[in-house]
Structures are given as structure tokens and as C-alpha cells.
Design a binder for these strands. Structure first.
Lengths: 238, 238
DNA sequence: TTTCAGCCTTGATGTAGGTCAATGCCTTAG
DNA sequence: CTAAGGCATTGACCTACATCAAGGCTGAAA
């Protein structure tokens, strides 16, 4: 599962696109790349478990990672889905003592970069700019989680699902008012804290009411204004 | 509500105890204090509203602040309660564009310090150590919010309440197995995403079962092992 | 082509906890 | 002392969603 790096491949351009590395100079980036590892995961393969010592953080290159918790009864709740280009577990750099707070597993075949916390932290010491970027990203995550808690406590399942669909809508809304679900419905359901059965029923009801049309993993949003009205959302998305 | 500072008072010792200021040198701290403001809030008085431009962050000196959201129907959900010594809204320094993500209001008479984001950020540029501390604190918040989401989605109201009580238990468990609720039950209920009626009923049931004893705002934990068993919690608290 | 495993859907039923409403404290103000 | 407003408690009822169970569809493996 874990590669030695092909030393001829040049990852610098790819990495610079990730905000965590965009402020590093060439030498710094080279240092990161030197100890970086490439990891391949099969569908269903675990990356780390909750409680494992958190010595590394990750950037998804392709595929999809789910971060999840398990209840004592074994129920799974997906906290976050990590898509290509996104990083995760980097916020733990500063409190690694407790270990990873979630399990991480590949939803599908996935390729990711892994980085050593200490190496990266050493670089941060020389780059306040990078510190600021990292803090901005943490701040954004914090903000997102507040929205998450808000949705879970103040809004019902239909709201959450519709909000999700609208948020997944690509930019050029006019041309393509449809959403390609990134993964199995049951996975998205867990992400939204909804049972698969309920998820299915809500989609069925929205279809019956003519608001959407479902065709496998494609959801066509037939009446976006009505959907927006349904959730009466003055919030900014995200 | 907002004071000019009595220039003779020396707040440096008090501030140094807050982690955000512990790494600053004397000059830096003096600069912070120069523009710091002292704010008094009456019970029920609002500090800021969700969406207000976030130009300042705060440290509670005494009293209690609630950070909350409102649903379109006007239902209130307390996201966090901020006790003396704790700071809040400092994570927004790096994405103030969006404004405060919550409302803030004094639950009781409250006194707090307020600081300018830009002044503090300027200092951060000279103190990577302070950056690291801030990041550690943000990381901790992130972690706590994951636990929060976990509790909301994987655990029922009784679990949440019992977990709260156990977590509120003072260190010297043996001598005083009782918890002094920091504020009105209805406030704690909202913090835990429970209706006041349900909160009351759960306390009543736990009393009937002999696990606790309630006397106004004091809750005596009569059978801590049983309470722990009830929530079967291998998690670390917090 | 057949088979099997995953996933999805749909129906029937159960339940935690929310809502509504009445009543009973305390506490503060007069 | 009395009144009034806020909070807590208790009961009756309701509903959103979970759970349990039974097919059905699809796509990959044999």
C-alpha cells in the first residue's frame, strides 16, 4: 500500500496547488517532497484508526476518503468526506498527543500523499505566511463545523438533504441543473446523518412533488427556486 | 456598556494567564493592552449578532456568554458557553470576511476584554510561538466540535446529559460527587440540544433510578460507576 | 448466461423526544 | 406582604425518523 517515491516524478506543481504548500519556497517544498510518501488504498481499506498516534497528515490525490466515528453499538457516522485536492488531519499537528480523533477509510480506490508533522512544523517556523494560511483553513473548518451542528440540531432531514443537493450544484447552474452524486447514496446519507431508508424516501417524495428527478446517481433539480424556498436559507452556502 | 480603560489598572498578569497572550513579550503585551477595551454586559444583553463584521475577539473576565444560532422558525441552539478565562471569536481573525458565524449574548452580568484582530495579527507575525499556540487552540476546538457532532448523531439525550454531568464533575471526585450547574437548566438543555421538558424528565428518571439526586441547581451523582456504565464511554472526556 | 453480493426501495411498525398546556415554584419589585 | 415574571415540572399527545423485513435491480464474477 505504501510506495517509495519514484524520484524522477516531479510533484512540486501538483503540491503547490494545495494551500498548505503554496507559500513554501523551492527549498522548503523540496524538503517536504523528500520525505513525502505516496499511498494507494483499495476500496474499503483503512488508512488509520481513531486513537492511532497522529504523526502524519494527508492530501488526497484521487479517490475518496471517509472520516468517521463509531458508536458503542457499532453505528457509523461519517464526519467528513475528503475529495481530491483536499487535505485532512493537518490540524492535529499541534495536539498529536491524543491521536487521530476519527477513523479514516477509502470509499473507493484512492491515492494520497502523506507528510510528516514534524518536518512540516519545522518549515512553518520559518514561514509565518504559511502559519496564517493554515490558520485560515482551520478557521474555515471550524466555521463549517458550526454550520454542521446548526444543521443537525435546528434542521430536519429534508432540509439537510436539499441543502446538500443545492450546495453540490455546479457553478453554471443554468446549463446543468443536475447533481452527480460523488458516491453511494448510503454514504451520503451517513454524511448527512440520515438512514438510507429515510434518504430514499425523501428523494421519492421530492420526485413525487416534481422538485427533482432521480436517475441512479444523477439527481436533476427540476425546480431550484422551490427547493431554495423549501429550506428558506438566508445562510451563505458551506 | 463599553469602558475607557482606567490607565492605572494593570491587566498584564491577568492577560498572561490566557494562552493567547502567554507568549508575547512585555512590549507586545503593552501594545495589546493599549487598544484593549473592557466591556460590561447586563444579563440578556447582546454582544454581537451573527453576520456582524468580525473585527474583534474577546476574553471573558467574569460572567457567562452564550454563542448561539437561530433557526428560521426562531428556535435557539446554543453552540457554546464561554466561561471566565476563555476566549472566543479569535479563530475568525483569518476569515473575518464572513462576519461572526453566531450570535453572542450575556447569560448573566458579564465583564469581558475585547481585542482588535489586526493589532493582534500584527503581533503574531513576530511570534511564531504564538501562532503555534493559537493553532493548538484551534485544533482543540476542532476536536471538540467533532466530539460534539459525534454526540449529536450517535448518542441520545440521556447519554448527552450524563456525559455532560460527568464531565462537569470537579477533580476531587471522592469528596464531592456533586455538580453545581453553572446556569439555568434550560440553557444547559439548549447547549445539549435537548428541550427543557425532556431535560427535566431525564433528570427525574435518573433520580427515580437512584443514580442522581437533584436539588435546585445542584446535582448529586449518587452512583458514578453506574452513570459511566450507562454511557459506556471509552472516549476521553471533552 | 447464471449467480451472487451490494445497494436501493418500499411497506409496516415502533419510539425517542418534541410540542402544547396547565400548574407550581422562586425570586425580585413594589 | 403581595404581585408578577421567569423557570421548572408533569401530563397528554404527536410526529419525524429509525428499525425491521421483504423484494428488486445492477453489475461483476464465475
Amino acid at each position: 500500500m505504501e510506495h517509495d517515491l519514484d524520484s524522477r516524478t516531479d510533484f512540486t506543481d501538483e503540491l503547490r496547488r494545495a494551500y498548505l504548500f503554496s507559500e513554501l519556497d523551492d527549498d522548503q517544498l523540496a524538503e517536504v517532497v523528500r520525505e513525502m510518501r505516496l499511498i494507494d488504498l483499495d476500496k474499503g481499506e483503512r488508512l488509520f484508526e481513531q486513537g492511532d498516534p497522529a504523526r502524519r497528515f494527508f492530501v488526497v490525490r484521487r479517490g475518496l476518503i471517509k472520516l468517521y466515528r463509531l458508536s458503542p453499538e457499532g453505528h457509523e457516522k461519517i464526519i467528513e468526506l475528503i475529495a481530491p485536492g483536499q487535505s485532512f488531519a493537518e490540524a492535529l499537528m499541534f495536539m498529536a498527543a491524543n491521536g487521530y480523533p476519527v477513523h479514516a477509510e477509502a470509499v473507493e480506490t484512492t491515492e494520497l500523499f502523506s507528510f510528516d508533522n514534524e518536518v512540516y512544523k519545522a518549515l512553518l517556523r520559518d514561514s509565518v505566511e504559511s502559519c496564517f494560511r493554515l490558520m485560515a483553513s482551520m478557521s474555515m473548518r471550524l466555521h463549517k463545523q458550526i454550520n454542521e451542528i446548526d444543521r443537525l440540531t435546528l434542521h430536519n432531514a429534508t432540509y439537510r438533504l436539499v441543502a446538500y443537493l443545492l450546495q453540490e450544484l455546479p457553478e453554471e447552474v443554468v446549463t446543468s441543473p443536475d447533481v452527480q452524486l460523488t458516491t453511494a447514496k448510503s454514504v451520503i446519507a451517513s454524511r448527512l446523518s440520515i438512514q438510507p431508508e429515510t434518504f430514499s424516501r425523501i428523494l421519492a417524495r421530492l420526485s413525487r412533488d416534481g422538485l427533482i428527478e432521480v436517475e441512479g446517481n444523477r439527481v436533476l433539480l427540476r425546480d431550484i427556486p422551490a427547493l431554495r424556498r423549501l429550506i428558506e436559507l438566508p445562510d451563505s452556502p458551506g
